[in-house]
């Protein structure tokens, strides 16, 4: 399960930015096409945060949906998985949203 490694990366990155403060809320962005399952991150977070200034922090996870643009007809359409097929029939498609895996902000005390 790579979510444990991902969650550990989040905790490590946030700890590097703390200056003695404690984190109350941590805002993340995990796109629906990112390959990371938000519920699994929530599950791992308490374990990863234990003993750090993030212990007990609340996670707020935004989940931007997948959006793609067809390189043939240039239409933009919603994408629920990585099997991208434009309604025009083309598979030559670029993903423009949904792969986000980002730490947005934190509320510190």
């Amino acid at each position: 399960m790579h979510e444990m490694a991902v969650t550990q990366s989040i905790v490590d990155a946030v700890c590097e930015r703390l200056d003695g403060a404690r984190v109350r809320v941590l805002a993340l962005e995990i796109g629906t096409l990112s390959g990371v399952v938000p519920d699994a991150v929530r599950f791992c977070f308490d374990l990863a945060a234990e003993g750090t200034p993030l212990a007990g922090a609340r996670l707020e996870i935004a989940e931007p949906p997948g959006l793609a643009r067809c390189r043939v007809c240039e239409a933009e359409f919603r994408l629920d998985d990585l099997i991208a097929l434009c309604p025009c029939g083309s598979a030559d498609v670029g993903i423009i949203s949904g792969r986000e895996l980002r730490i947005r902000s934190m509320e510190v005390l």
Partner: peptide, 27 residues
């Protein structure tokens, strides 16, 4: 990592502030 810099600042005031991070998780 995870060494836990103990939080001390501002705890007596109870005020929170928002810090923008905007960084990739796997940076």
């Amino acid at each position: 990592h995870g060494a836990g810099q103990a939080g001390t600042a501002d705890e007596d005031t109870g005020e929170t502030r928002t810090v923008l991070l905007e960084q990739q998780v796997l940076a």
